[in-house]
Nucleic acid binder design. Structure first.
Lengths: 249, 249
DNA sequence: CGCGTGCTTGAAGCGGGTCAACAACAGTGG
DNA sequence: CCACTGTTGTTGACCCGCTTCAAGCACGCG
């Protein structure tokens, strides 16, 4: 279950994540280029800002281990969580060029990140078309997540929303090789989940009770267990996509 | 105000849209490549499906003129409009590789589209890094729109939501060179706007009345007029971004 | 003129938001 | 070891906003 990452910085060609079956294989020259693209590594503690809304960040990040989330806020503090980032996810692409970031990213657990220079992106596109396509593929994937999320918040009932989100998170955890068996620990509080789904904490909690009583899943403390995935998918009105290998930058 | 596009297919180097100041200039070889990337053109009547959810589409599209929208639906028919597409917008990138489209696209007005082959995307990335970066830039832009939209539906009040959407649409219309003065015709019905904002038609209408009475904008029939943009932005709790040139594929 | 589509308005009911209190638990420091 | 404190989860009470249902209006078109 743990996705702990060895503390000392590891050269890209020896990156243990590359070995995971979820990620497509990269050529030696590509890995070498990624190495030159890489500036360093960053560790963030739970609750730490990886970057803030409105600030300039000359970096891109790949999550090596841990969980983080992207969010936006309104001037009066209302917060909307946009998406979560697990290992293998690329963060910060939303602003391709310069200018202040329009969203923030915060760590949920201890997070270890690979840091890249945004400036070198042009060079990457020039020299490594396969990697460039990979980056675009990851952006398209993120966009699909946002589409799904928008459908959830806009048109699903609160019960459907929660079912969808929990299923979505379990799939992503499994796909990033984290999941053991049918249950795992969610690192976020109910407040995070409510902020993700556009609902209040109280309403989230009460709806969760109702979902629990249906028996297809349970979420007690941090522990999420999917007892009957088929049923959960049916409640969520989700449509499962077959998993694909994805690029790893 | 009109963005009518000359009916006969036009070679890319003579594409009148390229001349618009919103779009960044492209080199001759790039335009030539785009020409080879292009399969043909497509006209769609209002209400026509450009592609449907769940079907395979081997194409990418650039809007040459008119309005369209991307949407997703739930099995029982509830619809969520994800975003609108105006001229210069690239559609269909959300699924980079093969597999069924996870959203649909429908024309709101007469729409003229430039059709590209998805297969040739790999070749484009290999041969034209600047165009490739442009595509990624457009994807990132779309993602920012989705982020904003998610914040709207999740955390803005219905009044704020409508104000934000109308402001957003007016900015995009202006940026694509469509807008004349302070008013223009929105091609969508109230039902579309309600489906965009995750609210019911009735509630949309009633909230719109309240907004109208504040005087900073008016929307009668199709005609949207922004009387006081500053005030509208304040109501929407939006933060204006300075316009940037964007790539045109 | 009649029909259809889209907009507007009223009435009624429920879902979810807010407020508030309490329980469970972990961490802190005396 | 235990009171103290802060965080997180849970539950109840109340009420506002939004949804649904329903009807009428305005306009365009055959």
């Amino acid at each position: 279950m743990t996705d702990a990452f060895p503390p000392p910085s590891v050269p890209c060609h020896a990156c243990p994540l590359r070995l995971l079956p979820v990620f497509s294989k990269a050529g030696d020259d590509e890995i070498e280029f990624i190495q030159s693209f890489k500036i360093g590594e960053l560790n963030a503690k739970p609750g730490a800002a990886i970057y803030l809304e409105g600030t300039d960040s000359p970096h891109l990040f790949t999550v090596l281990s841990g969980w983080a989330f992207r969010y936006k806020t309104l001037p009066d503090g209302r917060r909307q969580i946009l998406n979560y980032a697990l290992r293998g996810d690329l963060i910060g692409l939303q602003n391709t060029l310069s200018g202040p970031m329009e969203h923030g990213v915060e760590a949920l657990t201890d997070v270890r990140l690979c840091v890249f220079s945004r400036d070198k992106l042009v060079g990457l596109f020039a020299a490594q078309p396969v990697l460039a396509l990979g980056i675009t593929w990851l952006a398209a994937r993120e966009e699909r997540f946002l589409d799904d999320h928008l459908l959830s918040i806009g048109r699903r009932t609160s019960e459907e929303r929660i079912a969808y989100l929990l299923w979505h998170l379990s799939v992503r955890a499994r796909e990033s090789g984290l999941d053991i068996g049918n249950g795992f620990d969610l690192p976020m509080r109910q407040q995070h989940l409510a902020d993700t789904l556009g609902m209040s904490l109280v309403s989230f909690n009460k709806t969760l009770q109702r979902l629990r009583s249906q028996g297809c899943m349970s979420l007690n403390g941090r522990r999420l267990v999917i007892h009957d995935e088929k049923a959960l998918i049916a409640v969520a009105k989700a449509d499962p996509r077959r998993p694909e290998r994805r690029p790893f930058i």
